[in-house]
Design a binder for these strands. Structure first.
Length: 804
RNA sequence: GCCGGAGUGGAGAAAUUGGCAAACUCGAUGGACUCAAAAUCCAUUGCUCUAAAAGGCUUGCGGGUUCGAGUCCCGCCUCCGGCACCA
């Protein structure tokens, strides 16, 4: 008879909530542990990814509680964002109402998992108590020059008449209707994350408890390159333009220069030249091309300007081209082109018949095109004979001495575009005054409340723009008529500081009390999906640094340890509703119970790896729990005289293994020792009357099970006569004197091949081990008269006899 | 192209410092119990040779270091993820 998981799980979920077992406050007497799972978007349906995430998080909450930590484990909702707005467009229902209904549903489902949170700290980013502090945060950045508005090209869907977030553009097309996305210039708000690029990069080195792949992704995203920037004069004019290069050592190989089509100098350069008409046609075409068309690495296109640049090192005149393979958004939007050492320049030069000069000696057998490797500098006057790094140092000195340029650093990361022409987000707290220009809403006039509206249909600007009563306001500076900003903030702004709000979630005076934040921060363990490796985790680091500089955050890095879980796959692809390969956790709560499901998620494989779903595996973990239930509840009668020492030693080995594995996040290997231990108990019962150590071992087994399958563990704890709450019982400590075995199996090898096993005392000495090995009958036939050349002894585990 | 990670039975996997490869779970096959089924329990289950015993082989491929390599080194292949006309 299987145990009744449904009634047991409901019972204990109620007790934990009633007893406020997992509600935390500042307490200097215990070490704090801030344990955080990435707060979810309230989709309204718990899926296996959530279950995996919260199972890992809850295991840690419960384990750290039992090991004497003051654990903060809060839960909240990333509840602004596009899905709610799209649902509103489709159904006409208020996003607020929908969102709050879905939060209620998911809260119930999370509680069914038995995952415990400090619910009084619950927050939701769509609530005005939260997003008013987004607005406060915006004003802090604005005050410090870290928030600014400028015109920028954004993704525009001509079908839906709306701007799209980068995340909504899939392979250059609108995610919703499949139309090719265009670029459109609109005035947008940005956060100046580029000011922090270097700190964000160098501080990655401190984050040694983060997965390497996440740190690598952030390094790639920030994309630091060192090089030189210098000025190139335009022949027969006083104009000049700046170029950036990582290879200033190849400057003698410059045979042309290229400006991006959007480069500000272009218009003046081409005016009045013979090439003007052709150049203007090219520029217009390039401007109209979609992002994917321009970025597709196909044939290079460009057009000659009719003008020439003068190479500053040797006064050689080289043609200036316009080509869209040079991007206005990176570096200076202009390059010196060195086809001999750069493949893109090579491709362009061969197509347009431009000269190619090699300034780095390729290897003798080299038959490629541009040579980008290291070699001796050649055809380069005073740089000849130097290697790459020497030549770079020399030419940079030369440029600096002549006042022509300097060594510089460039980053790939761009400023963070935070404005969205969308309804369901935090309004940007700025007004536009005809007299005073852009004026921030004073802090004491926050919040700028998001009004309820009825028409969410996209019209090319935020639906808020249609609300005259809301839009029209007075200027905080001059009192004259003014118009509110109608854009809302990217939801990544909400999630860039919510972990700080969790330390003081009900504060109505401040975003958070720095004293409380100092106690809890940093987050000791952050758990979530790797899909946030760059965006959220980079933005949160950035905002924390801003708040640190303001003296409000006590740490520069918000997340001390990061754990990224793998995906659940089914038939080789990610579980998703659209693929129809979803296994609903709610069904499994019914059929197998939350404990069996949790245990399966822990056991199915390394938590970092993607894992293929197999419902049979849940059958297996339920079978195991049933076995534990039976052996604990159906055992009667003890033989006090029977020897229990080996069983107790097994239990202590299990304590050591499980503890170590949990500490190292090897949850999948923390489960088998419990299975083995329960099998040992079953064997003990089957062999006759269980011995005196039985209850002691059962107690250990229940405690080790408590963080993994908490409901059944608590029920068994109560059933075995304990009146205390298992959740706050101390975690068992392995008695190290019991861990060593008195006899071990020694392996005897001949020439590295296993030939015999012998049981020996664990404290056997080398000479004795060698003697025992050579005495083995089985060994004789393998030595068979050959000369024994050497004997390797690793007592007490192994002896290897080398013959030949 | 650059940067990361992975590759072990029919499946998920384990092997913490270079020392018994495949623990544990699933699946499969056979058996016990049952009128029968479910549940439960027992046995077998990497490949190969063999009637059996005993042996031989085996951690993507090829080399190397070592008494000994899944683990370390060199060179490849494949898959997954990130970045990418970034100068």
């Amino acid at each position: 008879m299987a145990y009744d998981h449904k009634s047991i799980e409901a019972k204990w979920q109620k007790i934990w909530a009633d007893e406020k077992t997992f509600e935390a406050s500042e307490d200097e007497s215990r070490p704090k542990f801030y344990n955080l799972c990435m707060y979810p978007y309230p989709s309204g349906a718990l899926h296996q990814g959530h279950v995996r995430n919260y199972t890992f998080g809850d295991l840690l909450t419960r384990y750290k509680t039992m090991t004497g930590h003051n654990v903060l484990s809060p839960m909240g909702w990333d509840s602004f964002g596009l899905p709610a707005e799209n649902a509103a467009i489709a159904s006409g229902a208020q996003p607020k109402k929908n969102t709050e209904a879905q939060i209620a549903t998911m809260t119930r489902q999370i509680k069914q998992l038995g995952a415990m949170y400090d619910w009084p700290r619950e927050l939701a980013s769509h609530s005005v108590d939260y997003y008013r502090w987004d607005q406060w945060l915006f004003l802090q950045l604005f005050d410090r020059g870290l928030a600014y508005k400028k015109e920028a090209p954004v993704n525009w869907c001509p079908q839906d008449q709306t701007v799209l977030a980068n995340e909504q553009v899939v392979d250059g097309a609108c995610e919703r209707c499949g139309t090719i996305v265009e670029k459109k210039n609109l005035a947008q708000w940005f956060f100046k994350i580029t000011d922090f690029a270097d700190r964000l990069l160098t501080d990655l080195d401190q984050l040694d408890e983060w997965p390497d792949r996440v740190r690598t992704m952030q390094r790639n995203w920030i994309g630091r390159s060192t090089g030189a920037q210098f000025s190139i004069g335009v022949a027969d004019s006083t104009d000049s333009f700046e170029v950036f290069t990582t290879r200033p050592d190849t400057i003698f190989g410059m045979t042309f220069a290229v400006l991006a089509p959007e480069h500000p100098l272009v218009d003046r350069l081409i005016s009045g030249t013979d090439q003007e008409a052709g150049a203007r046609t090219y520029i217009t075409a390039a401007g109209r091309a979609s992002e994917i068309e321009r970025l597709s690495e196909g044939d290079k296109t460009g057009v000659f300007t009719g003008r020439y640049a003068v190479n500053p090192v040797n006064d050689v005149r080289v043609p200036i081209y316009i080509a869209d393979y040079v991007l206005m958004g990176y570096g200076t939007g202009a390059i010196m082109a060195v086809p001999g050492q750069d493949q893109r320049d090579w491709d362009f030069a061969t197509k347009y018949g431009v000269d190619i000069i090699r300034t780095v000696e390729p290897p003798d057998e080299y038959d490629g095109e541009a040579f980008v490797g290291d070699g001796v500098t050649t055809n380069s006057d005073f740089l000849n004979g130097l290697d790459r790094s020497e030549a770079i140092a020399e030419i940079v000195n030369w440029l600096e001495d002549g006042g022509l340029g300097e060594s510089t650093v460039n980053y790939r990361i761009r400023d963070w575009l935070i404005s969205r022409q969308r309804y369901w987000g935090s309004p940007i707290p700025m007004v536009n005054c005809a007299e005073c220009g852009l004026v921030p809403v004073p802090e004491d006039q926050l919040p700028v409340v998001l009004p309820d509206i009825v028409d969410f249909a996209p019209k090319g600007q935020s639906p808020l723009a249609a609300l005259d009563d809301w839009v029209n306001t007075t200027c905080p500076v001059c009192g004259g008529p003014a118009r509110r900003e109608t854009d809302t903030m990217d939801t990544f702004v909400d999630s860039s500081w919510y972990f700080l709000r969790f330390t003081d979630p009900r504060n109505s005076e401040k975003a958070f009390d720095p004293v409380k934040a100092r106690y809890w921060m940093p987050v000791d363990q952050y758990i979530g999906g790797v899909e946030h490796a760059v965006l959220h985790l980079l933005y949160a680091r950035f905002i924390t640094k801003v708040l640190f500089d303001m003296g409000l955050a006590s740490v520069e890095e918000p997340f001390a340890r990061l754990f990224t879980q793998g995906m659940i796959t089914m038939d080789g692809s990610k579980m998703s509703k659209s693929k129809g390969n979803v296994v609903d956790p709610l069904d499994l709560f019914e059929s197998h119970g939350a404990d069996a499901l949790r245990l399966y998620h822990l056991f199915m494989g390394p938590p970092t790896d993607d894992a293929a779903w197999d419902t049979n595996g849940v059958d297996g973990t339920l079978r195991f729990l049933d076995r534990v239930w039976r052996v604990v509840t159906e055992t009667n009668g003890f033989d006090e005289s029977a020897d229990a020492s080996e069983l107790i030693a097994d239990a202590h080995r299990a304590i050591a293994k499980v503890t170590d594995d949990i500490e190292r996040f090897h949850f999948n290997t923390a489960v088998p020792p419990l299975m083995t231990l329960s099998t040992a108990l079953v064997d003990r019962v089957r062999s006759g009357i269980p011995s005196a150590g039985f209850n002691e071992v059962v107690e250990i087994l229940i405690k080790l099970l408590a963080p993994m399958a908490p409901h059944i563990a608590h029920e068994l704890w109560e059933k075995t006569g304990h009146s205390t709450m298992l959740a706050t019982e101390p975690w068992p400590v392995a008695d190290t004197t019991l861990l060593e075995r008195s006899t071990v199996t020694m392996v005897v090898q001949v020439n590295g091949k296993l030939r015999d096993r012998v049981d020996v005392d664990a404290d056997i000495d080398a000479a004795e081990a060698e003697r025992v090995a050579l005495e083995s009958d089985k060994i004789d036939q393998w030595i068979d008269g050959q000369e024994v050349k050497r004997i390797i002894v690793r007592e007490p585990n192994l002896v290897n006899i080398v013959v030949g």
